[in-house]
Amino acid sequence: MAQAAPKAEGLHDCREAWVAALEDCAAADRRIVVVVNDSVGSSKLGSFQKKFPDRLVNVGIAEQVMVGVGAGLANGGCIPFVSAASCFLTGRSLEQVKADIAYANFNVKLVGQSSGVAYGELGPTHHSIEDFAWLRPLTNLTVIVPADPWETAEAVKWAAAHEGPVYLRLSRMPVPDIVVPGRTFQPGKAQVLREGGDVAILACGTTVHLALDAARALAGEGIAARVLNMHTINPLDDEAVLAAARTGAIVTVEEASVRGGLGGAVAELTSAHEPVPVERVGFPGFVPTGSVDWLFTEYGLSQDGIAAAARRAIARNRK
């Protein structure tokens, strides 16, 4: 288990980390191949293609056969990484993901690029905010959402070594490094990034750094917020979620629909075992036209929006 590297300044596109880690894995393991749907550029796979030209299978704009070919490559002894815009990978080929990958339990890595609302103004056809709800119930499929470049690389390396289907949900949105001493990546185990006993903020992916910002702001008001990085949506870290519930108030934050994703998973679990107010920050459904930044602000995926949700959750707990 590696620990996070020291902080690099500024914001980073996690796709750089994805492709660098993938190339390292591919150099070490000949079985690794990539399958794309004309998505070499958007998956940042140009240099992979140069280094391993025979190991990049471009099926053209055809997501159903793309995922089916992934299953077949696994049958033939390869370790395929099927990389495409997550809206098409999960939506267009959902039945292939269900039947050919999860149910058949093939050793295929599905890599959803530009997930969430990364495509901003291109609109809900190109957004992928439903993917958690679609994929979370699928038996055998591990769902991982890295928060920064380090975690992206860790997730890619883990997926390459893990025997079984994985969905890696990546983003093109620039994010800062998450700097917490002793941070480790272990699939299925949430990271406690900050301790606190008044409320717990459970975030994933691009929203983790915003949750930390909100916790710092809340500390100024005397509210101690615990922050968890929920990098694994399936299987959920039940123990960490139930411990979080014992703070008395939970906020979930995800660049996804508030229906059926991280918030839904947390609500399912807590309602059964540790009933607690759960405020879900995310998108209510199809969103209007707007840039990524505007959408994040408008729907409360921000320091202020998350802090406000935390105050609401605490107030509901006191009723």
């Binding site: 191949v33 025979d54 190991r55 299978v57 159903q64 056969v65 995922v67 089916g68 070919v69 992934g70 299953a71 077949g72 490559l73 696994a74 049958n75 033939g76 002894g77 390869c78 395929p80 039945e95 292939q96 039947a99 050919d100 149910y103 058949a104 093939f106």
Partner: peptide, 26 residues
């Protein structure tokens, strides 16, 4: 070799197996 049932799934998987064979020289 693979789970089928919904129609139109086995053929794409077979294409993937054939590609794997071509890649490995089998």
């Amino acid at each position: 070799e693979t789970n089928t049932g919904p129609l139109g799934h086995g053929f794409p998987v077979a294409v993937g197996i054939a590609i794997a064979g071509a890649l490995s020289g089998s």
